Simulated assay, not measured.
Amino acid sequence: MLDFKVNNEKCISCGLCANECPVGIIDMKDIPSIEQEKEELCIKCQHCMAVCPTEALSILGKNLEESLKNKGNLPDPKAMGEMVKTRRSIRKYKQENISKELINELLTTASFAPTGGNSNSVQFTVIDNLEAMHKFRDLAYSLIKNQGEAGKIDEKLSFINDFQKGWYQNGTDVIFRGAPHLLIASVPKTALSPEEDTLIALSYFELLANANGIGTLWNGLVKWTINDVANELLEILEIPSDHKIGYAMLFGKPAVKYPRAIQSEGVHIHTAKID
């Protein structure tokens, strides 16, 4: 049941909900309605509720009072542009925890990221404290070492085995960079666009993290380690077996400050000319 409800006293029959419905299942007569046989076509995007100018409509049992009001409080474009341009990949971190409350707030907001077919099925697997991160890092290097000694690492990923040697020889942590936190985004393999969904969600998280002074690093080494070298880590992290890992991200308080942005090598723009 979609629990599609319309307050007749508030509805002004503007038709916005019907016009905005991505699958066109809202019938507009005197007031909007959805025929029962069309309910299964709904992608649960809640556009109809969000666009209603008079707060006359609700769906999926949602309480309109719990929806954030769009007051047009957009970030300053210049400041947003400067944040994007000065953002750096952080590979040195302070050995301090980000508060669990802030991490949860960032992830909750990042969950608003769009997904293919509005599946909203991205799972965030996070290591939210230093102690757990240190244990996971030690375990990962140990498993890499075991796989390397058993000759079970694909030649194209032999550099990951080299990284574990550096870790045991001199404590150089190339894979995890001493980061206090790790975030992995995964999604069911049956999703319409599994990899894209995770990348968009992580992009949302990164922007939010940077706005809060938190450094991030997109980390393919962690993804390869978990997926292709030591996939026992999947079970340890309790990532569902039917999920596909899109990417991994390290984050924490930066231990280095960059006083200026880099200078771009130029933008590549192709303007399509359609005759």
Rank of each mutant, 00 (worst) to 15 (best):
Glu39Val: 06
Asp3Arg: 15
Glu206Pro: 01
Leu237Ser: 11
Thr225His: 09
Gly151Thr: 03
Cys17His: 08
His47Glu: 03
Asn212Met: 05
Ser13Met: 05
Leu74Thr: 10
Asn8Lys: 15
Ile144Asp: 01
Ala211Val: 01
His270Gly: 03
Leu41Ser: 10
Gln147Ser: 11
Glu40Thr: 10
Cys45Arg: 13
Ala185Trp: 04
Pro259Asn: 08
Gly15Asp: 01
Ser193Trp: 02
Pro188Trp: 04
Glu101Asp: 10
Ala211Ser: 15
Ile214Ser: 05
Ile239His: 08
Ser13Val: 02
Leu183Val: 07
Lys44Trp: 07
Asn8Tyr: 08
His134Pro: 00
Asp128Asn: 15
Asp30Val: 11
Arg137Ser: 05
Ala50Arg: 12
Glu65Cys: 01
Asn97Gln: 07
Pro53Ser: 03
Phe159Glu: 01
Lys62Gly: 00
Pro259Asp: 09
Leu107Ser: 06
Lys78Ser: 10
Ile226Tyr: 08
Ile12Glu: 13
Ala132Cys: 03
Asn161Ser: 14
Cys17Gln: 08
Gly178Val: 00
Met1Val: 13
Gln164Trp: 09
Ala191Asp: 15
Val187Gly: 01
Leu208Pro: 04
Thr172Phe: 08
Pro22Ser: 09
Gly61Thr: 12
Leu221Tyr: 13
Asp228Val: 05
Leu221Pro: 01
Pro22Tyr: 09
Val187Tyr: 00
His268Asn: 13
Ala50Ile: 12
Glu196Gln: 15
Thr216Asp: 01
Leu183Ser: 00
Asn70Gln: 07
Arg88Ala: 03
Pro22Gly: 09
Pro254Cys: 05
